[in-house]
Nucleic acid binder design. Sequence first.
DNA 1: TTTCATTGATGACATATGTCACTACATTTT
DNA 2: AAAATGTAGTGACATATGTCATCAATGAAA
Lengths: 200, 200
Amino acid sequence: MIRIIIAEDQLLLRGALAALLSLEDDIEVVAEANDGLEALKLIKLHKPNVLVTDIEMPKYSGIEVAQKLKRENSNIRILIVTTFARPGYLQRARDAGVTGYILKDTSSDELSQAVRTVASGGTVIAPELSQASWVLPDSLNDREREILRLAEAGKTNKQISKALNLTLGTVRNYLTEAMHKLGASNRIEAFRTARENGWL
Amino acid sequence: MIRIIIAEDQLLLRGALAALLSLEDDIEVVAEANDGLEALKLIKLHKPNVLVTDIEMPKYSGIEVAQKLKRENSNIRILIVTTFARPGYLQRARDAGVTGYILKDTSSDELSQAVRTVASGGTVIAPELSQASWVLPDSLNDREREILRLAEAGKTNKQISKALNLTLGTVRNYLTEAMHKLGASNRIEAFRTARENGWL
DNA sequence: TTTCATTGATGACATATGTCACTACATTTT
DNA sequence: AAAATGTAGTGACATATGTCATCAATGAAA
Protein backbone atom coordinates (compact mmCIF):
# COMPACT_ATOMS: atom_id res chain seq x y z
CA MET A 1 0.00 0.00 0.00
CA ILE A 2 1.37 3.40 -0.99
CA ARG A 3 0.69 5.96 1.72
CA ILE A 4 0.53 9.53 0.42
CA ILE A 5 -0.02 13.09 1.59
CA ILE A 6 -1.46 15.73 -0.70
CA ALA A 7 -0.42 19.39 -0.42
CA GLU A 8 -2.39 21.82 -2.54
CA ASP A 9 -3.96 25.14 -1.60
CA GLN A 10 -6.93 25.03 -3.95
CA LEU A 11 -9.52 23.22 -1.95
CA LEU A 12 -11.50 22.02 -4.92
CA LEU A 13 -8.49 20.46 -6.63
CA ARG A 14 -7.13 19.05 -3.39
CA GLY A 15 -10.38 17.32 -2.60
CA ALA A 16 -10.58 16.03 -6.13
CA LEU A 17 -7.05 14.68 -6.11
CA ALA A 18 -7.70 12.94 -2.82
CA ALA A 19 -10.90 11.44 -4.14
CA LEU A 20 -9.32 10.26 -7.37
CA LEU A 21 -6.27 8.73 -5.75
CA SER A 22 -8.31 7.11 -2.98
CA LEU A 23 -10.14 5.15 -5.64
CA GLU A 24 -6.94 3.26 -6.42
CA ASP A 25 -6.59 0.00 -4.52
CA ASP A 26 -2.92 0.38 -3.85
CA ILE A 27 -2.95 4.03 -2.74
CA GLU A 28 -4.03 5.45 0.59
CA VAL A 29 -4.36 9.19 1.21
CA VAL A 30 -3.34 9.59 4.84
CA ALA A 31 -3.57 13.38 5.08
CA GLU A 32 -4.16 16.61 3.18
CA ALA A 33 -2.28 19.88 3.66
CA ASN A 34 -3.34 23.39 2.72
CA ASP A 35 0.17 24.86 2.65
CA GLY A 36 3.83 23.95 2.86
CA LEU A 37 4.17 24.27 6.60
CA GLU A 38 1.22 22.02 7.27
CA ALA A 39 2.63 19.52 4.80
CA LEU A 40 5.89 19.30 6.75
CA LYS A 41 4.07 18.78 10.02
CA LEU A 42 1.82 16.10 8.61
CA ILE A 43 4.77 14.30 7.06
CA LYS A 44 6.50 14.08 10.41
CA LEU A 45 3.32 12.81 11.95
CA HIS A 46 2.27 10.24 9.36
CA LYS A 47 5.53 9.22 7.66
CA PRO A 48 3.97 8.68 4.23
CA ASN A 49 5.79 7.12 1.28
CA VAL A 50 4.98 9.89 -1.17
CA LEU A 51 4.21 13.59 -1.02
CA VAL A 52 2.04 14.83 -3.88
CA THR A 53 2.42 18.60 -3.90
CA ASP A 54 1.73 21.80 -5.77
CA ILE A 55 4.53 24.36 -6.12
CA GLU A 56 2.83 27.67 -5.52
CA MET A 57 1.36 27.52 -2.02
CA PRO A 58 1.32 29.78 1.06
CA LYS A 59 3.93 29.45 3.81
CA TYR A 60 6.37 27.22 1.91
CA SER A 61 6.35 26.42 -1.79
CA GLY A 62 6.47 22.79 -2.85
CA ILE A 63 10.10 23.27 -3.81
CA GLU A 64 10.98 24.72 -0.43
CA VAL A 65 9.29 21.78 1.26
CA ALA A 66 11.37 19.42 -0.86
CA GLN A 67 14.55 21.29 0.06
CA LYS A 68 13.80 21.09 3.76
CA LEU A 69 13.03 17.40 3.54
CA LYS A 70 16.26 16.76 1.69
CA ARG A 71 18.25 18.62 4.33
CA GLU A 72 16.72 16.35 6.94
CA ASN A 73 17.70 13.31 4.90
CA SER A 74 14.09 12.26 4.65
CA ASN A 75 13.57 9.27 2.37
CA ILE A 76 10.10 10.36 1.28
CA ARG A 77 9.51 10.47 -2.47
CA ILE A 78 8.09 13.64 -3.89
CA LEU A 79 5.77 14.12 -6.86
CA ILE A 80 5.16 17.71 -7.92
CA VAL A 81 1.91 18.48 -9.71
CA THR A 82 1.92 22.03 -11.05
CA THR A 83 0.42 24.36 -13.62
CA PHE A 84 3.76 25.73 -14.66
CA ALA A 85 6.10 24.24 -17.22
CA ARG A 86 9.01 26.37 -16.10
CA PRO A 87 12.48 24.97 -16.69
CA GLY A 88 13.88 26.73 -13.62
CA TYR A 89 11.28 25.13 -11.39
CA LEU A 90 12.14 21.69 -12.67
CA GLN A 91 15.83 22.36 -12.23
CA ARG A 92 15.41 23.44 -8.61
CA ALA A 93 13.03 20.59 -7.94
CA ARG A 94 15.55 18.03 -9.17
CA ASP A 95 18.28 19.66 -7.13
CA ALA A 96 16.01 19.19 -4.13
CA GLY A 97 15.76 15.50 -4.84
CA VAL A 98 12.30 15.54 -6.41
CA THR A 99 11.79 12.53 -8.68
CA GLY A 100 8.38 13.32 -10.09
CA TYR A 101 7.25 16.47 -11.92
CA ILE A 102 4.00 16.47 -13.87
CA LEU A 103 1.54 19.13 -15.02
CA LYS A 104 -2.03 19.68 -13.92
CA ASP A 105 -2.93 19.19 -17.56
CA THR A 106 -2.55 15.43 -17.37
CA SER A 107 -5.17 12.73 -16.92
CA SER A 108 -5.98 11.11 -13.61
CA ASP A 109 -4.68 7.80 -14.95
CA GLU A 110 -1.32 9.36 -15.60
CA LEU A 111 -1.41 10.85 -12.13
CA SER A 112 -1.96 7.58 -10.30
CA GLN A 113 0.61 5.90 -12.52
CA ALA A 114 3.09 8.65 -11.67
CA VAL A 115 2.47 8.11 -7.97
CA ARG A 116 3.28 4.43 -8.38
CA THR A 117 6.41 5.08 -10.40
CA VAL A 118 7.73 7.60 -7.91
CA ALA A 119 6.83 5.39 -4.95
CA SER A 120 8.84 2.52 -6.37
CA GLY A 121 11.90 4.67 -6.83
CA GLY A 122 11.39 5.68 -10.45
CA THR A 123 11.40 9.10 -12.07
CA VAL A 124 8.57 10.84 -13.94
CA ILE A 125 9.05 14.10 -15.84
CA ALA A 126 6.34 15.80 -17.87
CA PRO A 127 7.20 15.32 -21.56
CA GLU A 128 6.71 19.06 -22.18
CA LEU A 129 9.71 19.63 -19.95
CA SER A 130 11.97 16.65 -20.46
CA GLN A 131 13.33 17.85 -23.80
CA ALA A 132 12.49 21.49 -24.17
CA SER A 133 14.23 24.65 -23.18
CA TRP A 134 17.11 23.24 -21.22
CA VAL A 135 18.99 25.64 -23.42
CA LEU A 136 18.98 28.66 -21.17
CA PRO A 137 20.90 28.14 -17.96
CA ASP A 138 20.02 30.39 -15.09
CA SER A 139 23.04 32.61 -14.87
CA LEU A 140 21.50 35.25 -12.65
CA ASN A 141 23.15 35.85 -9.32
CA ASP A 142 21.36 36.68 -6.08
CA ARG A 143 21.70 40.43 -6.42
CA GLU A 144 20.31 40.42 -9.92
CA ARG A 145 17.43 38.25 -8.81
CA GLU A 146 16.60 40.53 -5.88
CA ILE A 147 16.76 43.60 -8.04
CA LEU A 148 14.57 42.04 -10.72
CA ARG A 149 12.00 41.12 -8.10
CA LEU A 150 11.88 44.68 -6.82
CA ALA A 151 11.71 46.04 -10.35
CA GLU A 152 8.82 43.68 -11.01
CA ALA A 153 7.06 45.13 -7.98
CA GLY A 154 7.22 48.54 -9.63
CA LYS A 155 10.07 50.00 -7.59
CA THR A 156 12.31 52.61 -9.17
CA ASN A 157 16.08 52.24 -9.20
CA LYS A 158 16.30 54.76 -6.41
CA GLN A 159 13.89 52.82 -4.21
CA ILE A 160 15.73 49.59 -4.98
CA SER A 161 19.05 51.14 -4.05
CA LYS A 162 17.67 52.25 -0.69
CA ALA A 163 16.07 48.88 -0.01
CA LEU A 164 19.31 47.02 -0.67
CA ASN A 165 21.77 49.62 0.61
CA LEU A 166 23.40 49.98 -2.74
CA THR A 167 24.26 52.98 -4.84
CA LEU A 168 21.91 54.07 -7.58
CA GLY A 169 24.64 53.45 -10.11
CA THR A 170 25.26 49.96 -8.84
CA VAL A 171 21.62 49.05 -9.14
CA ARG A 172 21.62 50.24 -12.71
CA ASN A 173 24.73 48.22 -13.44
CA TYR A 174 23.20 45.03 -12.07
CA LEU A 175 20.05 45.66 -14.02
CA THR A 176 21.98 46.19 -17.22
CA GLU A 177 23.91 43.01 -16.59
CA ALA A 178 20.73 41.06 -15.91
CA MET A 179 19.16 42.39 -19.09
CA HIS A 180 22.18 41.24 -21.08
CA LYS A 181 22.05 37.79 -19.57
CA LEU A 182 18.38 37.51 -20.35
CA GLY A 183 18.54 39.03 -23.80
CA ALA A 184 16.11 41.72 -22.70
CA SER A 185 16.15 45.31 -23.78
CA ASN A 186 14.44 46.80 -20.74
CA ARG A 187 13.57 45.90 -17.17
CA ILE A 188 10.08 44.73 -18.02
CA GLU A 189 11.25 42.20 -20.59
CA ALA A 190 13.93 41.18 -18.13
CA PHE A 191 11.72 40.31 -15.20
CA ARG A 192 9.13 38.74 -17.48
CA THR A 193 11.69 36.41 -19.01
CA ALA A 194 13.14 35.56 -15.63
CA ARG A 195 9.68 34.90 -14.22
CA GLU A 196 8.63 32.70 -17.14
CA ASN A 197 11.70 30.58 -16.73
CA GLY A 198 11.12 30.16 -13.04
CA TRP A 199 14.21 32.09 -12.03
CA LEU A 200 12.52 34.49 -9.69
CA MET B 1 -32.20 16.48 -13.30
CA ILE B 2 -29.75 19.32 -13.87
CA ARG B 3 -27.80 18.82 -17.10
CA ILE B 4 -24.41 20.54 -17.08
CA ILE B 5 -21.33 21.07 -19.25
CA ILE B 6 -17.92 21.67 -17.74
CA ALA B 7 -15.37 23.90 -19.47
CA GLU B 8 -11.90 23.91 -17.94
CA ASP B 9 -8.52 23.55 -19.60
CA GLN B 10 -6.72 21.78 -16.79
CA LEU B 11 -7.44 18.16 -17.47
CA LEU B 12 -6.91 17.04 -13.90
CA LEU B 13 -9.30 19.59 -12.44
CA ARG B 14 -11.83 19.08 -15.20
CA GLY B 15 -11.92 15.36 -14.61
CA ALA B 16 -12.17 15.92 -10.90
CA LEU B 17 -15.04 18.39 -11.24
CA ALA B 18 -16.87 15.99 -13.51
CA ALA B 19 -16.34 13.14 -11.08
CA LEU B 20 -17.44 15.16 -8.08
CA LEU B 21 -20.55 16.56 -9.69
CA SER B 22 -21.52 13.23 -11.22
CA LEU B 23 -21.78 11.82 -7.72
CA GLU B 24 -24.76 14.07 -7.06
CA ASP B 25 -28.11 12.41 -7.78
CA ASP B 26 -29.69 15.47 -9.32
CA ILE B 27 -26.78 16.51 -11.56
CA GLU B 28 -25.73 15.00 -14.86
CA VAL B 29 -22.50 15.98 -16.63
CA VAL B 30 -23.41 15.74 -20.31
CA ALA B 31 -20.11 16.95 -21.78
CA GLU B 32 -16.69 18.39 -21.02
CA ALA B 33 -14.89 21.11 -22.98
CA ASN B 34 -11.21 21.91 -23.09
CA ASP B 35 -11.61 25.50 -24.28
CA GLY B 36 -14.18 28.20 -24.95
CA LEU B 37 -14.84 27.34 -28.55
CA GLU B 38 -15.49 23.70 -27.76
CA ALA B 39 -17.79 24.76 -24.94
CA LEU B 40 -19.92 26.80 -27.35
CA LYS B 41 -20.18 23.90 -29.78
CA LEU B 42 -21.11 21.42 -27.09
CA ILE B 43 -23.73 23.76 -25.69
CA LYS B 44 -25.43 24.00 -29.07
CA LEU B 45 -25.32 20.25 -29.35
CA HIS B 46 -26.47 19.22 -25.89
CA LYS B 47 -28.55 22.17 -24.66
CA PRO B 48 -27.56 21.83 -21.03
CA ASN B 49 -29.14 23.78 -18.17
CA VAL B 50 -25.89 25.02 -16.70
CA LEU B 51 -22.40 25.78 -17.93
CA VAL B 52 -19.72 25.41 -15.26
CA THR B 53 -16.67 27.20 -16.62
CA ASP B 54 -13.21 28.51 -15.85
CA ILE B 55 -12.30 32.02 -17.00
CA GLU B 56 -8.79 31.69 -18.32
CA MET B 57 -8.95 29.18 -21.17
CA PRO B 58 -7.64 28.97 -24.74
CA LYS B 59 -9.76 30.11 -27.71
CA TYR B 60 -12.41 31.98 -25.72
CA SER B 61 -12.32 32.92 -22.05
CA GLY B 62 -15.24 31.96 -19.86
CA ILE B 63 -16.36 35.58 -19.92
CA GLU B 64 -16.25 35.73 -23.70
CA VAL B 65 -18.29 32.56 -23.89
CA ALA B 66 -20.87 34.13 -21.59
CA GLN B 67 -20.98 37.27 -23.72
CA LYS B 68 -21.57 35.28 -26.90
CA LEU B 69 -24.31 33.23 -25.27
CA LYS B 70 -26.00 36.37 -24.05
CA ARG B 71 -25.90 37.89 -27.53
CA GLU B 72 -27.66 34.78 -28.84
CA ASN B 73 -30.31 35.12 -26.14
CA SER B 74 -29.44 31.73 -24.79
CA ASN B 75 -31.25 30.87 -21.58
CA ILE B 76 -28.43 28.73 -20.22
CA ARG B 77 -27.29 29.56 -16.66
CA ILE B 78 -23.60 30.10 -16.14
CA LEU B 79 -21.48 29.32 -13.09
CA ILE B 80 -17.91 30.57 -13.22
CA VAL B 81 -15.33 28.72 -11.14
CA THR B 82 -12.02 30.54 -11.14
CA THR B 83 -8.79 31.07 -9.25
CA PHE B 84 -9.01 34.81 -9.47
CA ALA B 85 -10.85 37.10 -7.10
CA ARG B 86 -10.65 40.06 -9.45
CA PRO B 87 -13.40 42.63 -9.18
CA GLY B 88 -13.20 43.49 -12.86
CA TYR B 89 -13.77 39.89 -13.84
CA LEU B 90 -16.85 39.71 -11.68
CA GLN B 91 -18.12 42.97 -13.10
CA ARG B 92 -17.77 41.82 -16.69
CA ALA B 93 -19.19 38.42 -15.85
CA ARG B 94 -22.31 39.99 -14.37
CA ASP B 95 -22.66 42.27 -17.38
CA ALA B 96 -22.60 39.12 -19.50
CA GLY B 97 -25.49 37.68 -17.52
CA VAL B 98 -23.48 35.29 -15.37
CA THR B 99 -25.33 34.47 -12.17
CA GLY B 100 -22.73 32.34 -10.40
CA TYR B 101 -19.14 33.22 -9.58
CA ILE B 102 -17.17 31.13 -7.09
CA LEU B 103 -13.50 30.46 -6.43
CA LYS B 104 -11.56 27.25 -6.85
CA ASP B 105 -10.77 27.54 -3.18
CA THR B 106 -14.22 26.34 -2.13
CA SER B 107 -15.35 22.91 -1.06
CA SER B 108 -17.05 20.43 -3.34
CA ASP B 109 -20.21 20.73 -1.27
CA GLU B 110 -20.35 24.43 -1.93
CA LEU B 111 -19.75 23.74 -5.60
CA SER B 112 -22.67 21.36 -6.04
CA GLN B 113 -24.85 23.65 -3.98
CA ALA B 114 -23.86 26.54 -6.23
CA VAL B 115 -24.81 24.52 -9.30
CA ARG B 116 -28.26 23.92 -7.84
CA THR B 117 -28.77 27.54 -6.90
CA VAL B 118 -27.76 28.80 -10.32
CA ALA B 119 -29.84 26.13 -12.08
CA SER B 120 -32.94 27.21 -10.24
CA GLY B 121 -32.49 30.82 -11.20
CA GLY B 122 -30.63 32.03 -8.12
CA THR B 123 -27.38 33.94 -7.80
CA VAL B 124 -24.16 32.87 -6.08
CA ILE B 125 -21.20 35.20 -5.56
CA ALA B 126 -18.04 34.27 -3.68
CA PRO B 127 -18.07 36.15 -0.38
CA GLU B 128 -14.51 37.41 -1.01
CA LEU B 129 -15.91 39.34 -3.93
CA SER B 130 -19.37 40.40 -2.94
CA GLN B 131 -18.04 43.26 -0.85
CA ALA B 132 -14.82 44.21 -2.63
CA SER B 133 -16.40 44.66 -6.02
CA TRP B 134 -17.12 48.36 -5.96
CA VAL B 135 -13.92 49.56 -4.32
CA LEU B 136 -12.41 50.93 -7.49
CA PRO B 137 -14.46 51.52 -10.58
CA ASP B 138 -12.74 50.70 -13.84
CA SER B 139 -12.40 54.07 -15.46
CA LEU B 140 -9.86 53.03 -18.07
CA ASN B 141 -10.84 53.54 -21.67
CA ASP B 142 -9.93 51.25 -24.55
CA ARG B 143 -6.84 53.16 -25.59
CA GLU B 144 -5.46 53.16 -22.08
CA ARG B 145 -6.13 49.46 -21.79
CA GLU B 146 -4.40 48.67 -25.06
CA ILE B 147 -1.41 50.77 -24.14
CA LEU B 148 -1.12 49.20 -20.71
CA ARG B 149 -1.22 45.75 -22.28
CA LEU B 150 1.61 46.63 -24.63
CA ALA B 151 3.58 48.23 -21.81
CA GLU B 152 3.11 45.05 -19.81
CA ALA B 153 4.56 43.10 -22.71
CA GLY B 154 7.72 45.17 -22.39
CA LYS B 155 7.17 47.48 -25.37
CA THR B 156 8.63 50.97 -25.27
CA ASN B 157 6.51 54.04 -25.89
CA LYS B 158 7.97 54.28 -29.36
CA GLN B 159 7.02 50.70 -30.20
CA ILE B 160 3.57 51.24 -28.78
CA SER B 161 3.07 54.37 -30.85
CA LYS B 162 4.00 52.48 -34.02
CA ALA B 163 1.77 49.54 -33.14
CA LEU B 164 -1.26 51.77 -32.58
CA ASN B 165 -0.50 54.46 -35.16
CA LEU B 166 -0.30 57.15 -32.56
CA THR B 167 2.26 59.80 -31.84
CA LEU B 168 4.89 59.18 -29.21
CA GLY B 169 3.57 62.12 -27.22
CA THR B 170 0.03 60.82 -27.35
CA VAL B 171 1.09 57.46 -26.01
CA ARG B 172 2.84 59.17 -23.13
CA ASN B 173 -0.23 61.25 -22.42
CA TYR B 174 -2.47 58.19 -22.29
CA LEU B 175 -0.02 56.42 -20.06
CA THR B 176 0.15 59.38 -17.70
CA GLU B 177 -3.61 59.52 -17.61
CA ALA B 178 -3.88 55.81 -16.88
CA MET B 179 -1.33 56.10 -14.10
CA HIS B 180 -3.35 58.89 -12.53
CA LYS B 181 -6.54 56.88 -12.70
CA LEU B 182 -4.84 53.89 -11.11
CA GLY B 183 -2.92 55.83 -8.49
CA ALA B 184 0.32 54.46 -9.92
CA SER B 185 3.60 56.28 -10.17
CA ASN B 186 5.04 54.39 -13.10
CA ARG B 187 3.95 52.07 -15.90
CA ILE B 188 4.83 48.92 -13.99
CA GLU B 189 2.66 49.78 -11.02
CA ALA B 190 -0.03 50.82 -13.48
CA PHE B 191 -0.29 47.59 -15.41
CA ARG B 192 0.09 45.52 -12.27
CA THR B 193 -2.81 47.30 -10.59
CA ALA B 194 -4.93 47.05 -13.70
CA ARG B 195 -4.11 43.36 -14.07
CA GLU B 196 -4.88 42.57 -10.44
CA ASN B 197 -8.26 44.20 -10.73
CA GLY B 198 -9.08 42.31 -13.87
CA TRP B 199 -9.13 45.38 -16.08
CA LEU B 200 -6.75 44.09 -18.70
C1' DT C 1 52.39 35.77 -3.00
C1' DT C 2 50.50 36.84 -7.04
C1' DT C 3 46.51 36.20 -9.74
C1' DC C 4 41.70 35.96 -10.27
C1' DA C 5 36.89 36.50 -9.38
C1' DT C 6 33.38 38.82 -6.92
C1' DT C 7 31.06 42.74 -5.35
C1' DG C 8 30.24 47.41 -5.40
C1' DA C 9 31.16 52.19 -6.98
C1' DT C 10 31.84 56.45 -10.13
C1' DG C 11 31.04 59.46 -13.93
C1' DA C 12 29.61 60.64 -18.45
C1' DC C 13 26.51 59.99 -21.95
C1' DA C 14 22.23 59.06 -24.73
C1' DT C 15 17.66 57.78 -24.68
C1' DA C 16 13.18 56.85 -22.40
C1' DT C 17 9.70 58.14 -19.32
C1' DG C 18 6.52 61.05 -16.97
C1' DT C 19 4.19 65.79 -16.46
C1' DC C 20 1.59 69.61 -17.93
C1' DA C 21 -0.50 73.18 -20.33
C1' DC C 22 -2.48 74.03 -24.41
C1' DT C 23 -4.30 73.13 -29.29
C1' DA C 24 -7.34 70.90 -33.03
C1' DC C 25 -11.01 68.42 -34.69
C1' DA C 26 -15.07 65.52 -34.79
C1' DT C 27 -19.03 63.75 -32.47
C1' DT C 28 -22.59 64.01 -29.20
C1' DT C 29 -25.66 66.52 -26.02
C1' DT C 30 -28.36 70.09 -24.72
C1' DA D 1 -26.32 76.53 -32.68
C1' DA D 2 -23.66 76.32 -28.71
C1' DA D 3 -21.56 73.60 -25.35
C1' DA D 4 -19.59 69.50 -23.81
C1' DT D 5 -17.00 65.39 -24.74
C1' DG D 6 -13.78 62.24 -26.75
C1' DT D 7 -9.65 61.56 -29.20
C1' DA D 8 -5.21 62.84 -30.80
C1' DG D 9 -1.29 66.01 -31.04
C1' DT D 10 2.67 69.48 -29.74
C1' DG D 11 6.35 71.34 -27.10
C1' DA D 12 8.99 72.03 -23.13
C1' DC D 13 10.65 70.34 -19.07
C1' DA D 14 12.53 67.29 -15.29
C1' DT D 15 13.67 62.86 -13.97
C1' DA D 16 14.55 57.89 -14.79
C1' DT D 17 16.68 54.39 -17.31
C1' DG D 18 20.20 52.00 -19.81
C1' DT D 19 25.27 51.75 -21.45
C1' DC D 20 30.13 51.68 -20.78
C1' DA D 21 34.63 52.14 -19.40
C1' DT D 22 37.05 52.14 -15.44
C1' DC D 23 38.30 51.72 -10.56
C1' DA D 24 38.80 49.71 -5.69
C1' DA D 25 38.44 46.41 -1.99
C1' DT D 26 38.00 41.71 -0.62
C1' DG D 27 38.62 37.00 -0.45
C1' DA D 28 39.70 32.70 -2.76
C1' DA D 29 42.75 30.02 -5.66
C1' DA D 30 47.06 29.18 -8.00
